[in-house]
Amino acid sequence: MLLLLLGIVFLHVAALVLLFVSTIVSVWRQNGSYTADLWQNCSITGGACLTGSTDVWIQTVQALMILSIIFSFLALILFFCQLFTLQKGGRFFLTGTFQILASLFVMSGAIIYTVMSPQWASPKDSFGYSYILAWVAFPLALISGLIYVILRKRE
């Protein structure tokens, strides 16, 4: 049972770390000479960074990514609280709901970025590793959320 709990916590923390990295690091879109993310656009050769776009869609992606981090962090705290307060046989519905919401937020943010970014980006640009990490964090958060919903507390 302890091994199962450690695996679930590890999966949750892995998804949370991926959400942090994908939101903070400046490589959602890259080219040979610059990188762009949710917050700023940086030149690789000159090292200068400019404030990113202020369009409504990018602000929506920023908000969704921040919400996904908040909900995933709250789900982790709720899991530990429920682990000690939930009665025997109870399920971790609240924890699972928060984690599933976090996964839906990151999925929505990545979809909006995918659909809207070609309007302002060059055709030679490619998606960076932060964008890919966001897509990897989505199924990890969804799977851990579903595990929480299925999981029952045992003595």
Rank of each mutant, 00 (worst) to 15 (best):
L4T: 13
L5I: 12
L6R: 10
V9A: 15
F10Y: 13
L11S: 15
H12D: 11
V13P: 04
V13W: 00
V13M: 10
A14C: 14
V17N: 07
L18I: 05
V21A: 13
V21D: 10
I24H: 09
V27G: 01
G32N: 13
Y34A: 06
A36G: 09
A36S: 14
D37Y: 01
W39T: 06
Q40M: 08
N41F: 04
G46L: 05
G47P: 09
A48D: 07
C49D: 04
C49A: 06
L50V: 11
T54F: 05
W57A: 06
Q59K: 11
V61T: 09
L64V: 04
I66N: 12
L67S: 11
S68L: 08
S68H: 07
I70T: 11
A75F: 02
A75S: 15
L78T: 14
F79Y: 13
F80V: 11
F84L: 15
F84T: 15
F84A: 14
T85Q: 06
L86C: 06
G89D: 09
G90C: 10
R91W: 01
R91E: 13
F92D: 09
F93N: 12
L94V: 12
T95Y: 03
G96Y: 03
T97F: 13
I100N: 09
I100W: 00
I100E: 05
L101R: 00
L101M: 07
S103V: 05
S103Y: 02
S103G: 15
L104T: 08
L104S: 14
V106Q: 06
S108E: 10
I112L: 12
V115M: 14
S117T: 06
P118C: 10
P118H: 08
Q119M: 08
W120Y: 05
A121F: 03
A121T: 15
A121K: 07
V136D: 01
P139L: 02
A141S: 15
L142K: 00
G145W: 02
I147M: 14
Y148I: 04
I150D: 02
K153S: 08
R154M: 03
E155W: 02
